[in-house]
């Protein structure tokens, strides 16, 4: 346990020295907050860019508060996921490639501790950034449109967070057996895209798919109710996270490090 704290502290310090505690939350805030702002100011933006020709009447439907927040969520689901993968793809693979992992793991370091400390530090960074971004977006939606109940915000926050957690865990899993950070990123993105495509096109067969968590959260924010398929989807996600974590540790123990 003491050793695990040492490992975690090192990860935290590394994130600080790379300024990741600053730029990752900032990026998440930018991509989420930009949605309610552009949606609200769209008429003015069109005006200031020269406006519409005289006589043209275009009704811009005023989006609902739910739609504005859902737009932030969809940004998280694309750019946000990409950022997560980019940040996490080298976390173990990079250390193995450079050789520093060999230097550290000839010390009596627990393999499970090494992997979980990496995972925990990433979780803290991503959940913090995700919370700040999503919370500020909720706040601006409230100011510009109308306030969505805070409880609803929290529910959607946690449900969608499960999907992000699964992504972090998958990146860590690939990290334990692929030595090149680029390849780790490629395969993780590949899996996410494949899973999302399959789940959305075969949604009647794959209602339990973790990739649908974002769709379910959307439905909830806009319509106010989670669909019935939410629970299986959450259960499958939690199982997938657990299995990936156990597999990561088991694989990492058996790998040759040099």
């Amino acid at each position: 346990m003491k050793q695990w704290v040492t490992l975690l502290k090192k990860e935290m310090l590394e994130l600080a020295r790379n300024f990741k505690w600053i730029w990752v939350p900032l990026t998440f805030i930018l991509i989420t907050v930009k949605e309610p702002l552009t949606l609200y100011y769209l008429p003015q933006i069109i005006d200031s860019l020269g406006g519409l020709p005289e006589g043209a009447v275009i009704e811009l439907p005023v989006p609902s508060a739910g739609e504005a927040l859902a737009a932030s969520l969809s940004q998280l689901n694309t750019i946000g996921v990409l950022i997560i993968v980019l940040i996490a793809m080298g976390s173990i693979a990079g250390e193995r490639k450079s050789g520093v992992a060999g230097l550290i793991l000839v010390k009596p370091v627990s393999y499970a501790g090494f992997v979980t400390a990496k995972w925990t530090s990433l979780m803290m960074l991503i959940w913090l950034s995700y919370f700040l971004g999503y919370f500020l977006s909720w706040y601006y939606v409230g100011i510009l449109f109308e306030f969505i109940p805070f409880v609803d915000f929290l529910q959607s926050f946690f449900v969608y967070g499960i999907w992000l957690t699964l992504i972090i865990t998958i990146v860590i899993l690939f990290n334990t057996f692929i030595k090149s950070p680029g390849a780790v990123g490629f395969f993780t993105i590949g899996i996410i895209v494949l899973l999302t495509l399959l789940s959305t096109s075969l949604s009647h067969l794959m209602e339990w798919s973790p990739a649908l968590l974002s769709a379910y959260t959307n439905t909830f924010i806009i319509g106010g109710n989670f669909p019935d398929e939410l629970l299986p989807s959450i259960i499958v996600s939690v199982i997938a996270i657990t299995i990936s974590m156990i597999a990561s540790i088991a694989i990492f123990k058996r790998r040759e490090l040099a």
């Binding site: 520093v100 230097l103 000839v106």
Partner: peptide, 30 residues
Amino acid sequence: RRLIGYLPQFPVFYDWMTGKEFLEYAGQLA
């Protein structure tokens, strides 16, 4: 691993750490 110390041919460290930090880290891990 408690019994051994090892120095690879081309040692690589965490470049962002100071020498003192790295040694203390290595010591605590051991």
